[in-house]
């Protein structure tokens, strides 16, 4: 167990909170931003897993070098890989959102037609005399 930098803990926690909040929004752009923030939070956490900062982990010495004074290079390497991956995949998500906007003319998460159908069945089964809610494709999330 290593001690954790409080600032970093707060930053990571804040990024996760904001990310999850945005991820739960109806607008696709906010969802994409949420994914980006979550990605930053996760990558920072991965970087922070290496423990406190130290000298650059490059030595010319033999096996008797004091490794405790150096930063742990492994989480840095992993974080670098993870950053590249999240960057690439987020770009794809952005392109997909753009496509969705071009096709539907709005940038909201679309309703699931199957859910809609099941909902209609349930409404009919209830035999509810009150007027039905409009069943258009958007705008029922409030």
């Amino acid at each position: 167990m290593r001690s954790l930098d409080l600032t970093m803990a707060l930053v990571v926690g804040g990024l996760f909170t904001a990310g999850v909040h945005l991820l739960l929004q109806r607008s696709l752009m906010r969802v994409v931003l949420g994914i980006i923030l979550l990605g930053h939070g996760a990558n920072l956490l991965l970087l922070e897993a290496g423990g406190p900062l130290g000298d650059p982990p490059i030595t010319a010495g033999g096996p008797d070098v004091d490794v405790s004074a150096h930063s742990d290079p492994l989480p840095q390497a992993m974080a670098l890989t993870a950053i590249v991956i999240t960057f690439g995949v987020t770009t794809f998500l952005l392109a997909l959102s753009h496509r969705s906007w071009r096709l539907t003319g709005h940038d909201e998460v679309q309703n699931d037609p199957e859910d809609r159908r099941i909902g209609d069945v349930a409404e009919r089964a209830d035999d509810d005399p009150t007027p039905h809610l409009p069943t258009d494709d958007r705008g029922d999330a409030g």
């Binding site: 996760a42 991965l46 922070e48 290496g50």
Partner: peptide, 15 residues
């Protein structure tokens, strides 16, 4: 989302 959770889990496992 599951991949980001995976990165988080990796960080926690490593630390």
């Amino acid at each position: 989302t599951s991949s980001l959770l995976f990165i988080t889990a990796l960080g926690l496992v490593y630390s």
